[in-house]
């Protein structure tokens, strides 16, 4: 059983420097560009994992950053909340709103653009099948479980941070994460056991 209260912390690049954030608060475009450059990959990752890949991801990512830009004057650079958590919260809420407005197709994961030199037709076929399985397994997760799972597993947000991001109780986050993990484990195990 996986300990739902201890998500894997991803060791990504460090948070944006405080002085850059202060300039962002002043709506300095150069500093804001640095902010976008620093956090665009996690934002794209959350959105694409929540909604599936496609042009809508870039649209929503842009909207997320524009919302951040509008909200920056009120952003407290000295607050314990990390800027990464803040922008991921904005992106996640946008994704959930988007799903509520219109059910987006969770698109199959595309094949990796670059192939490893060790890739053989057999291993590539197996990986392709695994990707498909993951796509189907994650696509079947309810939105709330998917959001918790993505934020916890891929972006290392704590239970408290996710609870705040999604505006739910911490206990609810733990329950959703546990359910999401269980469902995915079951589906991926079933995939492995297939001949």
């Amino acid at each position: 059983m996986v300990d739902a209260s201890a998500p894997a912390r991803s060791s990504g690049p460090p948070e944006l420097a405080r002085d850059v954030l202060i300039r962002c608060k002043a709506l300095d475009p150069i500093a804001f560009r640095a902010f976008v450059v620093r956090y665009q990959r996690p934002v794209f990752a959350v959105l694409s994992r929540m909604l599936g890949r496609g042009p809508h991801v870039e649209d929503l990512a842009q909207e997320a950053f524009l919302r951040a830009f509008r909200a920056f004057p009120a952003f407290d650079v000295d607050a314990p909340a990390k800027p990464s958590t803040w922008i991921l919260t904005i992106a996640t809420r946008l994704a959930l709103d988007s799903r509520k407005r219109r059910v987006l197709a969770i698109l199959p994961i595309e094949a990796a653009e670059t192939e490893s030199s060790e890739t053989t037709p057999h291993t590539e076929h197996a990986r392709s099948e695994l990707r498909t399985s993951i796509a189907h397994a994650t696509a079947q997760l309810p939105d709330d479980q998917r959001a918790v799972f993505v934020l916890a597993e891929f972006h290392g947000l704590t239970m408290a941070e996710i609870a705040e991001a999604l505006d739910v109780a911490e206990a609810t986050v733990k329950t959703r994460l546990h359910r999401a993990r269980t469902k995915l484990q079951q589906r991926l195990t079933a995939h492995r056991e297939e001949p």
């Binding site: 560009r33 950053f65 524009l66 830009f69 891929f154 995915l184």
Partner: peptide, 27 residues
Amino acid sequence: MTSELETEWEAQEPSAGFAERVVAAAV
């Protein structure tokens, strides 16, 4: 499971010039 997912559940990468487009839109 996470590492497997992270490897295979590939996230969409930002397109070239995304940051510039966002900054231009914000300005």
